[in-house]
Design a protein around this nucleic acid. Structure first.
Length: 182
DNA sequence: CCATAGATGCACT
DNA sequence: GTGCATCTATGGA
């Protein structure tokens, strides 16, 4: 399994987000196919709207993990990108492929469709936390190459769970995937 | 099926 | 002190 070419991460988030659909994400014994992403740039909904110590990795890197804690409970995992800008792609849902028993144990459910169908569910199932933030792709945790999803199978819609700049069509998911969020 | 409330803690203002 | 790039349980139709 070949690591995703570093040139992918040079792209702005809105270009990279649909290209990550169909690619493999792996951490340790867990692996899956990315089926839903969102792009965040310097729009008002993004943590990069104003750079803080937490979000500085979005400005300073591309091809790194940016993992943040929210709602007192959840971790959400992004891939930083854009060689010349400040961007990240949020991984919102994944189709589980390997390490499914581990995911079931971490998530506390046997329902496969619920293991990784949401950004915090995915992070919990894969064991991704703040300890992974600020690290480059590769090693224990990274993205791997796989065939692209055909454009006619990519659904473009508005981002979910935000209150600002809700009009931007920056959510991408695989049509009819039972593993996407709802 | 849908809608709402509560959890829970940290970053940021 | 405010507000989350969320999830789950619960209650009603």
């Amino acid at each position: 399994m070949r690591p995703l070419s570093h040139s992918y991460f040079e792209l702005p988030a809105a270009d990279l987000a649909p290209k990550l659909l169909g690619k493999i994400v792996r951490k340790g014994a867990c692996a899956g196919i990315i089926v839903e992403t969102e792009a965040y740039a310097t729009d008002a909904a993004s943590h990069a709207f104003r750079i803080t110590p937490r979000s500085a990795v979005m400005r300073d890197t591309y091809g790194y993990w940016y993992v943040y804690f929210t709602y007192g409970i959840h971790w959400c995992a992004n891939v930083t990108c854009d060689k010349y800008g400040t961007c990240a792609v949020l991984i919102r849902a994944v189709e589980p492929i390997e390490g499914i028993p581990i995911m079931k144990r971490r998530r506390g459910t046997d329902v496969i469709e619920n293991l990784c169908s949401g950004p915090a569910r995915f992070a919990q199932a894969f064991g991704i936390t703040g300890a992974d933030s600020g690290k480059p792709m590769g090693g224990n945790c990274g993205l791997y190459d796989a065939p692209e999803i055909l454009p006619e199978h990519v659904v473009i819609s508005k981002r979910i769970g935000i209150t600002k700049d809700t009009h931007l069509p920056w959510r991408f998911h695989v049509r009819d995937s039972p593993f996407a969020s709802r």
